[in-house]
Design a binder for these strands. Structure first.
Length: 293
RNA sequence: GGCGACGUGGCCGAGUGGUUAGGCGCGGGUCUGCAAAACCCGUCACACCGGUUCGAUUCCGGUCGUCGCCU
């Protein structure tokens, strides 16, 4: 079963309670909680929660490394396939969630090729992919450099064009949200409580050592980890670019925006049953369990 | 009180006598290896009142307001 939802929706606490009642472990689907040392800012489950319930896919990578979705899928599926106990999937990263439950087999990658392509003019890349596949634009956002780079990378590595890939049975299953594994899922929707909860939690983070945490990470934080909300703003602050108040205003704004994007991602997934955010944790857990049946 | 400058959409900020700068924010969306990323779409303003003009956000006069200098 799975519990998803935007950041600050309270899903972490619910997942822990649900897992406890079920004798399950939690497997996190969160793109940033995988990094060690990023605790306060990513709102990881606390020590008590992690003592009570085993959490997987948290603290599995060093912040200076790039932990890709493909790697995430490999590891998470490995855990899922070998687990002796039931697992509660919990998190807010839409792509990571789908990478775990859906038939997403990622095409290969090549660091050298990729960085070479990143240094190539976009127009040339677009020309290359369109020459190989006139309908490429139907499947790849030609305005999005990253997507174009990736499409060309896959094409050079495998010879497969975007159209060919889109025609695969697997791609069709993904479009239809046909899961690879069985599960029920609930989404927790904080509704108009979101802004308030974000600011409340951010205030706790601020007094809980967020700045110190980023400071400690500063020298050994990689590209992906450094782009996490809360971290990038404080890194700017530490670089002397903005003052503290502006920093936290920016974090508040960006967190709310992140929550909205997360909601957009999960919203169209027909497998998710939404329940409203509830004030009382007991009630929340009860409702969640009911919805998961 | 006098002189001068200015008054543009939630904010910042260009500009023009007649085809709606742009950025931020905000709203919506896309999503198969950086995904808390990247990208796409939307958001049509010119302080107020008169005047000139075929036509004024743009020119003229006045009103109000802001800022600066002077007294």
């Amino acid at each position: 079963m799975a519990i998803v939802g935007p950041t600050a929706s309270g899903k972490t606490a619910v997942a822990v309670d649900v897992a406890k009642r079920l004798g399950a472990d939690v497997i996190s689907v969160d793109s940033m909680q995988v990094y060690r040392g990023m605790d306060v800012g990513t709102a990881k489950p606390n020590l008590i929660q992690r003592r009570d319930v085993v959490h997987h896919m948290i603290d599995v990578a060093d912040p200076k490394d790039e932990f890709s979705v493909a790697e995430f899928r490999r590891q998470a599926r490995g855990i899922m396939d070998s687990s002796e106990v039931p697992l509660v999937i919990s998190g807010g990263s839409g792509l990571h969630f789908r990478a775990l439950v859906d038939p997403m087999s990622f095409a290969p990658t090549d660091e050298a090729l990729k960085s070479m392509l990143e240094g190539t003019e976009k127009a040339a890349l677009v020309a290359e992919i369109v020459a190989a596949d006139a309908a490429a634009g139907n499947h790849v956002d030609l305005a999005n450099t990253r997507r174009v780079v990736r499409a060309v990378e896959i094409f050079r590595l495998t010879g497969e064009t975007p159209s060919q890939r889109a025609r695969s049975a697997e791609a069709e299953d993904i479009r239809r949200y046909k899961s690879e594994i069985e599960f029920t899922a609930v989404g927790i929707d904080p509704g108009d409580q979101l802004g308030m909860r974000v600011d409340q939690r951010l205030n706790e983070m601020r007094h809980g050592g967020l700045i110190e945490e980023v400071k400690a990470l500063q020298a050994r934080i990689g590209r992906t980890a450094a782009s996490a909300v809360g971290y990038r703003e404080i890194l700017d602050h530490l670089a002397g670019m903005i003052d503290v108040d502006e920093t936290f205003q920016a974090i508040s704004r960006n967190t709310k925006r992140l929550a909205k994007k997360q909601r957009t991602w999960f919203q169209r997934d027909p497998r998710i049953r939404w329940i409203p955010w509830l004030n009382h944790s007991d009630e929340r857990v009860k409702r969640t369990l009911e919805a998961l049946k």
